[in-house]
Design a protein around this nucleic acid. Structure first.
Length: 617
RNA sequence: GGCUUCGUAGCUUAAUGGAUAGAGCAUCUGACUACGGAUCAGAAGGUUAGUGGUUCGAGUCCACUCGAGGUCACCA
């Protein structure tokens, strides 16, 4: 029933075979929606058959159109303009289609296939709170998971938490030095922010230490000795910072000592580490809650950072890897357009990519997923190309199902967000802000302005989060985003609330239907479909294909744009025709059913974006 | 420099190789005594960065040029 396009494609193939005795591939049969300015629902592009028919485009279109009209009951009429064959679909088809949508709560979704896919997203560091960049990552990952689920996959959502290393040690040293035993509770600060503040404090103290050091004779001697001729003091010391931190910084020494003690499982250090990470996790949990996301499994880097050595052995025995004289292990990918890459240091320790190799294998053992999607910013494109290439050469069984869902960074008008410069847009602040905006809007103009406070807050949450989520998801993942904190997230136009508003309108129709106990069964006797009604039906009909496309391309923005377009058609319909005071009872019943179907699909599509629909707003 | 992503209206963006490049914001003008005005209708705003090529047909594919970002660590 929803396979109209495929059916038409097949019909055109039949027509060409019948009329011209030639077979054409279905990929050569193009069927598009007819643009609004022409009559018809779907258009067939006939140019590809002109050559084999040896006739003019208009004649070919007319012949195929005639064949379709005579042999296919769905095709009620056709017209030909400039070589485009415009088909009008029979009202009876649309009637049947509408009933099939209403009868199927899962309309658009695929049945369970039993196939498993893992989606990794969020993957934060534990030294500071989540920010706007994480929000894009999380929303993409969550939405992608929902879409894959709707496409019939069993989805396992995971994150890998970077809970070890220099960063968290900086927060730990900072808290020990200057924390005076304070806790998130004693200071009444959200606990991940509490830890993040000590990280920032460390960076500040460290900056002062570095600037002071730059005045010393040692520093001046190093500058004279190592500077490049073009460098002034400022640019030299900017580049020299890491070296200084490792060789001269007192705080740096404390951090390294902390890291060594951690690696040696020093009980006191581990206790502190657990406490600070615990604070961070409690904070993250709240933010995830606010965003409405959850995970099946958390991987911790403290558990996985030593993984991958067995893979190295494996790679050596398969001659995918080779050992250099200093006994470091490498892989040579130059024939695939990459470089040589180290996978094991001369001292036998792992590097980043080794961990990822090991983690991939462990995950496959844990969940046996045939596909694994990594939601990670596009800075790491090269890393993932290399990672996937290596796994492919190792003949890992899941290698063909690896996908890097790469997305552009979120930038401010002034450039990249930088913790050190305090230009990071904090996730919790942003969530608070969009809720406040939504509440303000509700109280000044909303229907719920006079509802009790808990209702208003609930609606404000749904509306505000919809605005934020839609704002981010509607943009194609590959594009980098510029976010201007000066301009608030919009509530009007192509936004989440716009789509919610169409749903709320439908909901109020349905409430009235229930209240007045209106009989909808005569809907199928309505035969004189209006343009605004057909437009909605065509849009609904698109949904399964869009969903499939979004799943195949791991692209939630397709769903976002579809939802907007459907909501827009509904708002137009709302203005163009009357629903309750329709001219006939049949028209009223039909329009109510159509509205109901639109509401059902809107809710389904927005759910794929992690956006909830309010009943009113 | 190599590889890579991107470049569409003042801003944010859409368009499986198909018809006059479609929206939103901002600007201007209209529409509620009629189902919710977070809506709708209209105006204005475009050499799709540039040049060439492939094609019946190019924003889309190819080549080159220009511009912006990323990456090319025994960091993670």
């Amino acid at each position: 029933m929803t396979q109209l396009i495929q059916h038409l494609q097949q019909s055109v193939q039949d027509a060409v075979a019948h009329l011209y005795g030639e077979t054409v591939a279905s990929s050569k049969v193009q069927i598009n929606q007819t643009p609004a300015e022409f009559t018809g629902d779907y258009s067939v592009v006939v140019f590809p058959y002109v050559k084999l028919a040896k006739k003019a485009p208009d004649q070919v279109a007319n012949e195929i159109g005639t064949y379709l009209q005579e042999n296919r009951p769905e095709v009620a009429a056709f017209n030909v303009i400039k070589g485009f064959l415009n088909l009008e679909i029979a009202n009876s088809f649309w009637q049947q289609f509408l009933q099939s949508v209403l009868a199927d709560a899962a309309f658009g979704r695929q049945p369970r296939s039993g196939r498993k896919v893992m989606v990794e997203f969020s993957s934060p560091n534990t030294n500071k709170p989540l920010h706007l960049g994480h929000i894009r990552n999380i929303l993409l990952g969550w939405s992608c998971s929902k879409i894959l689920d709707a496409a019939g996959y069993d989805v396992v959502k995971v994150q890998i938490i970077n809970d070890r290393g220099v960063a968290i040690c900086k927060s730990m040293v900072s808290w020990l030095n200057w924390g005076e035993g304070k806790t998130p509770t004693s200071e009444n600060i959200k606990s991940d922010h509490f830890v993040g503040d000590y990280y920032v404090l460390f960076e500040q103290k460290s900056k002062v230490e570095y600037e002071t050091w730059q005045q010393t004779d040692v520093a001046k001697a190093i500058f004279e000795e190592k500077r490049k001729p073009t460098q002034d003091e400022k640019t030299f010391f900017k580049d020299y910072k890491n070296k200084w931190f490792n060789d001269f910084s007192v705080f740096g020494a404390e951090v390294r000592e902390m890291l060594l003690k951690w690696e040696a499982h020093d009980p006191e250090t581990l206790a502190l580490w657990k406490q600070m990470n615990g604070w961070v996790y409690a904070g993250f949990e709240q933010t995830y809650n606010d965003l409405g996301v959850s995970f099946e499994k958390l991987y911790y880097e403290s558990d996985t950072y030593l993984l991958g050595k067995d893979i190295v052995e494996d790679g050596l025995s398969k001659s995918v890897f080779f050992r250099k004289e200093d006994s470091s292990v490498w892989v040579d990918l130059t024939d695939a357009g990459f470089d040589q890459k180290v996978v094991l240091r001369a001292d036998g320790t792992s590097v980043y990519i080794t961990q990822d190799l090991g983690t991939a294998r462990m995950r496959y053992q844990d969940f046996n997923c045939e596909k694994m999607v990594y939601v990670v910013a596009d800075e790491q494109n090269y890393h993932f190309s290399v990672l996937f290439e290596i796994l492919k050469r190792l003949d890992e069984p899941y290698a063909a199902g690896l996908y890097h869902l790469s997305y552009g960074l979120v930038e401010l008008p002034t450039g990249r967000m930088k913790t050190r410069e305090g230009t990071v847009v904090d996730a919790d602040d942003l969530i608070t802000e969009v809720r406040r905006l939504a509440l303000e809007s509700i109280e000044s103009q909303g229907e719920s302005a006079n509802a009790e406070e808990s209702v208003r807050l609930d609606v404000a949450n749904k509306v505000g989060m919809a605005a934020l989520k839609y704002f981010i998801i509607k943009v194609h993942p590959h594009k980098k985003m510029i976010f201007n904190p000066e301009e608030s997230v919009d509530l009007q136009g192509q936004t989440g609330p716009y789509i919610q508003y169409s749903y709320v309108r439908i909901n109020s129709l349905m409430q009235r239907v229930a209240l007045e106990n209106i009989n909808l069964t005569m809907a199928d006797q309505y035969l004189d479909l209006q343009d605004a009604e057909k437009e909605l039906l065509v849009a609904l009909h698109e949904y399964p294909g869009i969903l499939q496309n979004a799943a195949n391309n791991y692209d939630p923005s397709l769903i976002a744009n579809f939802s907007y377009s459907l909501a827009k058609s509904f708002h137009k319909f709302w203005h163009d025709v009357r629903v309750f005071s329709a001219p006939t009872p049949e028209a009223r019943a039909f329009r109510l059913q159509l509205s109901k179907a639109v509401g059902q699909v809107l809710q389904s599509a927005m759910d794929l974006l992690g956006i909830e629909m309010p009943e009113r707003m």
